[in-house]
Design a protein around this nucleic acid. Structure first.
Lengths: 191, 191
DNA sequence: CACAATACTTGCGGTTCCGAACTATGTCTG
DNA sequence: CAGACATAGTTCGGAACCGCAAGTATTGTG
């Protein structure tokens, strides 16, 4: 890392650029720093523990979710991992091809698919997660234990709030104009 | 959102799965929630303000960085945006093709390239950013103003710590074994 | 002027990612 | 029970993304 500008300098530049505009700075800094921290932490974890097992971030998260919950239906795995169903299909395929994950049809509902770790997957996670946690401790080094708790708790409130009210908020914002389609993506066959 | 499991339930399942393993839970929850929050917030912002301008998250971040700093050399833009130089080349091309961004050679050092917003880009950001900030306020709704400040400050400490010590830490972790190459990537011309 | 260092681009191979279209299955209702 | 509707998962188009190697151009240095 060792950036050209520190995070403090950036905040100062924002102040300079936006001094006149009436903005809510505390919230802006909070959100912005959440993403900065997430990126920096993710990069550190990828390049320390994950890389040596040839796992991507998303692959690890999917394994983690399935590991924690035991068997899990794919739709819930996607949701917990924070990715779309379509993405999960591909990620699960990769993990299956490496023998870490297996998928089974649901016994009674033929539409469902269930994911589970293979023994190799279990073994990998049992080995990997303590190392992962060590790095979580490393990145949290500047926080007191009570601060880490408070941080987690505030973020939890934000996530809960978004889960509860995000969709309604987006609907209200749009009003009657429908969400424009993405530039990319599958096109209709005709028309 | 409205997940199958709440964030609290997940933490409980982790406790059940890992009850015997000696882990540092506060740090684990903090890091995990940073990513959960980042994902949820990003999705909300993409589907509220960004989508209507047909901007991707990364595209917006690049525009934002250049907007805040005025002119900026590409290497620093990539760093501030948290993406690689190679990715920036592509993203910048996309933004140029939409007339939002322009690139110029550096006046004295011919190796450098400098990015700047076009008038259209300036206009877009002037229009977009207040809306973006409104949603930052929305997602921060469950936080007191002082809490938002404290949250930002803790995250800033984590980022600073990683910038200062992350690389050394990764070196220490690896010891003498070099980082294994990625599975993918361009191959040498001949062995 | 050779030669190293720096900055960016290009291309590769793979992954991730979204979201709409599509397929298959289950469920409700007349 | 047939047709309509709902739900779960897959496929696909287009873009983003990384890390690395190689290529181009420029600058600095002995």
């Amino acid at each position: 890392m060792s950036g050209h500008h520190t995070i403090a300098e950036t905040e100062k530049a924002v102040q300079a650029k936006l001094g006149a505009v009436p903005l809510r700075r505390e919230q802006m800094a909070a959100v912005s720093n959440i993403h900065r921290a997430a990126t920096a932490i993710r990069q550190h974890l990828e390049n320390s523990v994950l890389r040596t097992s040839d796992l991507t971030w998303t692959g690890f998260v999917v394994l983690w979710v399935v590991w924690i919950w035991g068997e899990m239906e794919t739709r819930y795995v996607a949701e917990e991992a924070g990715i779309s169903k379509g993405t999960l299909t591909g990620v699960a395929k990769t993990l299956q091809s490496r023998g870490l994950l297996e998928r089974m049809g649901h016994p009674t509902d033929g539409r469902l698919a269930v994911l589970r770790l293979t023994p190799e997957g279990e073994e990998l996670m049992a080995d990997l997660f303590p190392k992962f946690n060590e790095e979580e401790v490393f990145v949290s080094d500047p926080l007191e234990s009570s601060e880490a708790q408070s941080l987690a708790e505030m973020l939890r409130r934000m996530v809960t709030h978004l889960e509860a009210n995000g969709e309604q908020r987006r609907l209200d914002l749009r009003g009657d104009t429908p969400l424009p389609p993405r530039r990319s993506g599958r096109r209709a066959k005709h028309g």
